[in-house]
Write a protein that binds this DNA or RNA. Structure first.
Length: 691
RNA sequence: GGGCCCGUAGCUCAGCGGUGAGAGCAGGGGACUCAUAAUCCCUUGGUCGUAGGUUCGAAUCCUACCGGGCCUACCA
């Protein structure tokens, strides 16, 4: 229940598009927003976190066609996937809607009518390329052709990657639809526009002095858009289009970027209706107290949220955003996320390998609330999470809780040299940092408190008190009581970032953490449950596995496809021809050191009937010369570059042609023709051992 | 072409006009052994991208340049 002093805060994260899965880049925003919301709730404010799938547009329509099914089937499937991913990362939406909802259709109509009433809608013919085979108008990116300036081939319809020229798709020398391959034709169609110039004055005022935007964003808008007359915004698309048909303009559909932000309101409506309220309680002025509206977005969609969206809201007489909080993009190991490098990591792939809490903490430690890109450096990630969360915070409980299992906390809070009070006083600065979305600062302050707490434990040496017997029991209880209270205080401060740690801490001592104020008073006289591990260390091997699972198979190096070969038809002949060897132990096996190696050179051995001379790399500078009996089955040139498995600790053997320093593993024999080299799954690196 | 952001120790980042430039991690040395090889103490390490300028004083303000990232209105 909200107290009179509490604020009403509506928070949104950008709506993920239904054409793709959630990846680590998306999660920067959802984790950031979730932390902010959990913080506000912990502070006792009336805060709701709304989001939805963004479902409409050409891309979904094209995809559904390509997959031979309806758009609604596609978006339902993607919605389920998105929700599962978000749940895995403990993103706590109060409601998750869809732009393809009745509520959204109604609200779009309301906003639309307001624009009409104010004379802000205008119609005009637009010439656009049309695919006569697919029967759709083509957005620029669905057209490719030869650049009219530099003649580079296969360029997008809006700009040339080679020479940087920008143009209209109709200017391409030999335009082709990427949908059907057909040559598009220029067709004229009526589009509806929102006139923004009449709102120029309003937008200038709101962007420059409302306080909703960071100064550099305001400058960007002032310099880039507001310095000249605002162009009309094209908000309709002709049929066929997957979206909502405009009620007073049959055959025209709202462009996806019109109905997407209205989805924020629609989600509010669905959430409020379930509680007997209305979206108007949050989006229309006049309420006491008025609601704050905070939008979290990425910098790529800045102008939609800082020009078009406020224009729509203003025209409809609705509440303008209190803050538009803009974050940068995610890089991985200092570079743009890349499928080829294996750094384009999907949320669910991450969840299969690592703890979501680790990523939440790492993002929190990096997010400063400004527009800079943040980098996920994977070495740093493991080091930071292990040092901070496990080494400092969790360790505090791990090293002291067990001394209180029998006795519980001391009945009066002992002298602690002012440590608890000092960290309690820090609460104001930590809260201010959370409020500013400067989570990095909050984490630094919290970790400083954790350092002080660990130093306290070290100085008091409770393990010596434990050994000293009954005479020191009271003192031991006091020291452990201090340490555990300092730990729980940290857990309160970290609760917005690490909700599961907060819950586990509540189970350990003191019950569920419900309020920020619990950081201000130590607990006494309560039982302490048996300690259970609260966080797992990040194992670098798991990160490697994650990247390996993410890296796509380069076509040239893929193992042969087994598709279409039902497993039940495999012959038993090879096994029968060469029965299994006698059982060996794991120790026997481990004496054979099998390694992944890359063939860096291969040549025929002139005088040999069967041998190829290979040079294999075990990574770094380590190479081996190996003679392999695979001549006739593999052309040397085809082998260079590929990964194989070698017996790396095989005793060198002098042969007629030289010394062989290992052996390449291959399947063969048993009556079958051919020698088949083994290839590791993609992602394996030279030097990796087979276990 | 125009614009925005960033460039500080090996790594990730604070500091953003004023005592000799900081933290965490990594590296080196020591202590401890309660704890998920965790913790504590000491310590090595930087011409604050480059070049100019403003100022009594600049990592901090201005200009230019170099490097990285991003935006530029039908890519979401």
């Amino acid at each position: 229940m909200a107290s009179p002093a509490s604020r009403r805060i509506l928070v949104t994260a950008a709506l993920p598009y239904a054409n793709g899965h959630i990846h680590l880049g998306h999660l920067v925003e959802y984790v950031q927003t979730d932390i902010f919301v959990r913080f506000q709730k912990l502070r006792g404010h009336d805060c709701i976190f709304l989001c939805a799938d963004d479902t409409h547009g050409t891309a979904i329509m094209i995809r559904a066609r390509a997959e031979g099914r309806g758009e609604h089937e596609v978006i339902a499937e993607m919605r389920a996937a998105h929700l599962a991913d978000f749940a895995g990362f403990e993103i706590g939406f109060d409601h998750y809607g869809s732009t393809d909802s009745d509520a959204n259709r109604r609200l779009c109509a309301i906003v639309w009518q307001s624009l009409r009433d104010r004379g802000l809608v205008a119609g005009r013919a637009v010439e656009q390329l049309f695919d006569p085979v697919a029967g759709v108008f083509l957005a620029d990116r669905f057209v490719r052709g030869t650049c009219p300036r530099c003649r580079a081939t296969d360029q997008y319809g809006d700009a040339c990657e080679k020479c940087g020229a920008t143009y209209s798709p109709a200017d391409l020398v030999d335009p082709r639809s990427t949908l059907s391959g057909a040559t598009p034709e220029v067709r004229s169609a009526e589009h509806l526009f929102v006139r923004l110039e009449p709102l120029q004055e309003f937008l200038r005022g709101w962007t420059q002095s409302s306080g909703a935007l960071a100064p550099q964003v305001a400058n960007y808008l002032a310099g880039h858009f507001l310095g000249e007359p605002l162009r009309d915004w094209d908000v309709s698309r002709p049929a066929p289009y997957f979206g909502f048909e405009i009620p007073d303009a049959p055959g025209h559909y709202w462009y996806v970027w019109f109905d997407a932000p209205v989805g924020y309101i629609a989600a509010t409506e669905e959430w409020a209706a379930a509680r007997g309220g209305s979206w108007r309680d949050w989006w229309q002025a006049g309420d006491v107290p008025p609601a704050e509206i905070h939008h979290f977005i990425g910098k790529d969609i800045t102008y939609f949220h800082t020009l078009f969206w406020p224009a729509m809201l203003a025209a409809a007489g609705l509440t303008l955003p209190t803050k538009v909080r803009i974050h940068g993009f995610l890089t991985v190991n200092g570079e743009k996320m890349s499928k080829a490098r294996g750094t384009f990591v999907l949320a669910r792939t991450y969840l299969e390998h690592l703890d979501p809490a680790a990523l939440r903490y790492y993002y929190a430690a990096k997010l400063s609330g400004d527009i800079d890109d943040i980098d996920l450096n994977l070495d740093d990630f493991a080091a930071k999470v292990n040092a901070d969360l496990v080494g400092k915070v969790v360790n505090l409980a791990s090293r002291t809780a067990r001394w209180l299992e029998a006795t519980g906390l001391a009945d009066r809070y002992p002298e602690d040299g002012g440590l608890f009070a000092r960290a309690a006083a820090d609460g104001a600065a930590i809260a201010a940092a959370y409020e500013d979305c400067d989570f990095a600062r909050a984490m630094r302050l919290i970790m400083a408190a954790a350092d002080r707490a660990n130093a306290y434990v070290d100085a008091e040496q409770p393990w010596k008190l434990a050994k000293a017997g009954p005479a020191s029991a009271a003192r031991l209880r006091d020291v452990a009581t201090v340490a555990l209270n300092l730990f729980r205080q940290l857990a309160v401060y970290l609760a917005p970032v690490l909700p599961r740690l907060a819950a586990q801490t509540g189970n350990l001592v003191g019950g569920p953490i419900r309020s920020w104020d619990e950081s201000q008073q130590p607990l006494v006289g309560l039982p302490v449950a048996p300690f259970t591990p609260l966080a797992a260390r990040v194992d670098p091997a798991r990160i490697a596995a994650l990247l390996a699972a993410t890296t796509p198979s380069p076509p040239a190096l893929s193992p042969p496809s087994t598709a279409g070969a039902p497993m039940t038809t495999d012959s038993g002949a090879p096994l029968a021809a060469e029965p299994l060897a006698p059982t060996c132990t794991i120790d026997d096996f481990s004496r054979v050191d099998l390694r992944v190696a890359r063939i860096v050179a291969a040549e025929e051995v002139a005088d040999s009937r069967k041998l190829l001379k290979l040079t294999v790399s075990l990574g770094g500078d380590t190479t081996r010369t190996v003679f392999a009996g695979i001549k006739g089955f593999h052309a040397p040139a085809d082998l260079v570059g590929r990964l194989v498995v070698v017996v790396a600790n095989l005793a060198p053997r002098t042969m007629k042609f030289g010394t062989s320093e290992g052996m390449v593993v291959a399947a063969s024999g048993a009556g079958a023709e051919g020698v088949y080299l083994l290839s590791p799954d993609t992602g394996a690196l030279p030097g990796m051992r087979l276990h």
